[in-house]
Design a protein around this nucleic acid. Structure first.
Lengths: 199, 199
DNA sequence: TCGTCATTGATTGTTGACAAATGACAATAA
DNA sequence: TTATTGTCATTTGTCAACAATCAATGACGA
């Protein structure tokens, strides 16, 4: 899951995980030099990675000063984000019901099994990863995955406050009920379950 | 408008303008070396700028190969984008009606005057710039501008097909009618005008 | 005492050289 | 002819050194 040939992407996904799993709290400054030392590489790829994460909304950059982990979105912003996510993911699911390609259902089932396990365990980073993967599967199916790049930064901003305010097992059951409705071909039910899951 | 102390942002906004105004067509490859030569700087800041634009959706990058100007979004994707933009900008305008801060109205009026002029002239880059600025003003007012970073990449992807399919003067009148409704305090009318303007 | 302004240390911004990967083309063999 | 392999030029990826900038500190003068 983590393999990438170029260093910047390796660093980016590593930091992404640390931020989303709550190991790096909002406001924490990240220095290029220290990160370069920590990863044993030069500052170049680090800069690229930080730029990635900044554009994704996980970091905020001040010119000539550096980057910090972004603050959780305000209530107002979060509300908008919720609506945007619903719009994107609902569009994708609606599109899926046109074809009902069963390969998606298989992948969702696989994800669900792993997710259930992870929710029982204590590896929060793994839980976040699988939760993310679930929704990514939904978004990817529509229109040859064209929505993913639109969806990702929105999703990430929402996940900035993942760790707290979340009952993991309940989240699992919500995923399961979405998939169940899709298996049964009940479009309206799937969309309702999705909408009430995204909060 | 163009001033930025760091080179990457100067390069980024320059390329942004060239792409949005249609001088760089979808599919056109951009080489770091040639750009560095063209701007008379080294490849470092160029890389940063290209990364910015890639994350904004104006370019697509293939690892170890390079970047090209992004293709126009598909019909499906564009439809989603339209809904996202409406959601964001309508939220912002709704929030404005809570306070009705008159300083926004003043700035919108200023923008309208310039926009009208530009629509008459032939400088498409200027038209795009002002159109963008108009909507940015709307988005900026709400919640201390927190929606801007969410809105920008969505807006830019939509503007990839700005030049064609657009009657400039009609666009001006739509802007004007939005502002007119806001001046008059007619919230519903403003939101409807906004919604029908975003297509 | 308070405010202003140089100094200084830390951090980002920029550069040019080098390493690694890719795609195109030509040579070779079935 | 067609598929495969090897070579080469082009382009991106990475690196370490240098320059520019900022924020904090402390000296200075009102």
């Amino acid at each position: 899951m983590k393999l990438a040939s170029n260093l910047q992407e390796q660093v980016a996904s590593h930091l992404r995980r640390r931020i989303l799993s709550g190991q790096l709290l909002p406001g924490t400054p990240l220095r290029e030099q220290s990160l370069a030392l920590e990863f044993g590489i030069s500052r170049g790829p680090i800069r690229d990675a930080l730029l990635h994460l900044t554009k994704e909304g996980l970091l905020v950059a001040k010119p000539n000063v550096g980057v910090r982990v972004a603050a959780e979105p305000s209530g107002f912003k979060r509300n908008v984000i919720v609506h945007l996510r619903r719009e994107i993911e609902a569009s994708a699911v609606t599109a899926w019901f046109e074809t009902r390609d069963p390969s998606l259902l298989r992948r969702l089932d696989d994800n669900l099994a792993l997710y259930r396990e992870a929710c029982g365990g204590s590896d929060l980073a793994q839980v976040v990863e699988l939760d993310m993967a679930f929704h990514r599967l939904l978004v990817e199916t529509a229109d040859k995955g064209s929505l993913v790049d639109l969806w990702l930064p929105i999703m990430l901003r929402m996940f900035l406050r993942y760790s707290r305010h979340r009952d993991l097992m309940e989240s699992y059951h919500e995923h399961a009920s979405i998939v169940r409705a899709m298996h049964g071909g009940r479009e309206w039910e799937a969309l309702e379950a999705l909408k009430s899951h995204i909060v």
